[in-house]
Structure formats: C-alpha cells, structure tokens
C-alpha cells in the first residue's frame, strides 16, 4: 500500500503534484491551435449540433425529447470512455519518467481523469446552453446532476486505476479496452432509454453503475424528478467499491511499473 502511505504522509505535496500535472496537460492540449481553449466549448457544441440536427429532423422515436435524451447519455459516456482510454495512454507516455524519478504514480491517473472531467464540465455547460433554448423546462433538480457527475468521476477513476495498471503488464488491454467500450456503449442506455427495456431485465442493466448515473441525470434534467433513495444508495456503494478495488489493484501493481513499462 505504498501509494496510500505516500498520500497520507504528505497530502499537500501530493495534491500539488496532481494540480501541476493537470495544469501542464491543460496548457499542452491546445498548444498549437489558433482558437486554443475555445475548442473546449466549440468541440461539444459542434458534436451536439450535429446530433441534434440529425435526430430532430430525420429520426423520430417515441421518446419525448429524444435528442436531449441521447445528448445526456453521450456526454456522460464520452467522459467515461475518454478518461479510461487516456489513463492507459498517459501511463505509457510517462514511462520514462516512471523509470527515472520516484513519485506517487497514482497522481498520473488522478490528473488524467481530472483533465477529462474538465472536458465533461465544458460539455455539460454546452448541453445546458442548448437546453435553455429548447422547450424543456429546467428545474432546480438540475443541481442533482452535480452529485451524479461526482459519482461518475469516482467510478471512472476507479476503473482507470484498474485498467491502466493492468495494461502495464498486459499490453493486450490497450487493444481490448476500446472494443469493450464499444460493447459498453450498447449495453448502457445511451442511445435508448431504460423504459425501452422489459422490466424483468432491469435488475441486470442496473448492475452497471453508469446506467444509474445516466438514468438519474435524465430524470433530473428532463423530467424534474428526484431519483429514489434506494437507487442512490446502491450507486453510492458501488462507487466506493469500484474506487477501493481499483486503487488496490493499482497500488500493488505500481511497484512493478518501472520494470514493465
């Protein structure tokens, strides 16, 4: 548990390291582009514009506000998918550093996930901007979204810990993971809604914590509905389990990184 001891013995320098890495990544991301940081907003805007156009003009489903249904799912899922993928890449990118300097390795994953989370925030701002111009009434339940995305952050962080540290030993993971993400995209109600699934399968699809995050976020944003307490509790417990398991895997594997990467 060296990673954990490291954080506890000197939390201020640990979080400073995370912060500096986030700042560095953020500065580097739009280095040579003309519009720079504006892309953080323009990118989701363009993506949403395309999706909204396609689904409000061409495809018509029975679900009310299908396009927004879809957007909420896509924004949240994209974060999970981008963050876990970049955690694998950032561990590989930083391999030289890992071999030459000792520092708490978990900072790499926390900072790369935080960076993707910043993107998610830009995405959500864009989404709310679009919704403000639609006929949907935004209620105060939209603040529940904050709770849901924080849980999503930790689910993603735990997953990133596990996936990235395993990929250091088994490089196959970096090839399998995108395929699993594809599969996950269709097993999670992103392009469809929970109500389209027969009741008897609900138990199974709700085992996936991201299903809960997306479902509850839709309730909060589109239906002004507060999710039930049981569900929230289940989500909370799963989140904690994922973080604890992910971090334990990472922390025991990380001792081998300098030799494996």
């Amino acid at each position: 548990m060296r990673e954990f001891i490291e954080i506890r013995s000197d939390p201020s320098s640990y979080f400073n390291l995370v912060k500096e890495m986030v700042i560095a990544d953020f500065k580097l991301r739009y280095q040579n582009s003309f519009l720079g940081i504006l892309w953080s907003l323009l990118q989701p805007m363009m993506l949403f514009g395309v999706l909204l156009f396609v689904f409000s003009v061409f495809a018509r489903f029975q679900i009310e506000n299908y396009a927004y249904h879809l957007l909420i799912g896509v924004v949240l899922w994209n974060f999970f998918s981008e963050a876990t993928t970049s955690s694998i890449n950032s561990l590989i990118q930083k391999s030289r550093l890992i071999k030459k300097i000792y520092f708490p390795r978990s900072a790499i994953i926390i900072s790369s996930t935080t960076n993707s989370f910043i993107n998610l925030l830009f995405g959500i701002v864009t989404l709310l901007f679009f919704m403000a111009f639609s006929e949907i009434n935004l209620d105060t339940t939209l603040f529940l979204l904050l709770l849901y995305i924080i849980e999503l952050f930790f689910i993603t962080l735990g997953t990133s810990f596990a996936v990235s540290s395993l990929s250091a030993k088994y490089r196959d993971i970096s090839y399998i993971w995108p395929v699993l993400l594809r599969l996950g995209f269709w097993l999670t109600p992103i392009a469809y809604s929970v109500s389209m699934i027969p009741e008897k399968y609900h138990f199974f699809i709700f085992l996936n914590p991201i299903t809960r995050v997306i479902h509850y976020s839709r309730d909060a944003l589109l239906l002004s509905k507060v999710s039930n307490l049981d569900g929230l509790l289940a989500l909370f417990i799963t989140t904690i389990i994922i973080v604890v398991v992910g971090f334990s895997i990472f922390s025991s594997r990380s001792l081998q990184f300098p030799e494996e990467l």
Binding site: D10, N16, F103
Partner: peptide
C-alpha cells in the same frame, strides 16, 4: 515538458520532487 516554458517546468519538476507550490 518540452512544450512548456522554463518557468512552468520549474513548478512541474518541483512538484515531481515532492514540493508544494
């Protein structure tokens, strides 16, 4: 980081060595 300024790099490297800002 080759694409960051020397100043930014001092803070980044300092953090890697376990210093606070």
């Amino acid at each position: 980081q080759k694409d960051l300024t020397a100043k930014d790099n001092i803070f980044l490297y300092g953090a890697l060595l376990g210093l606070t800002r």
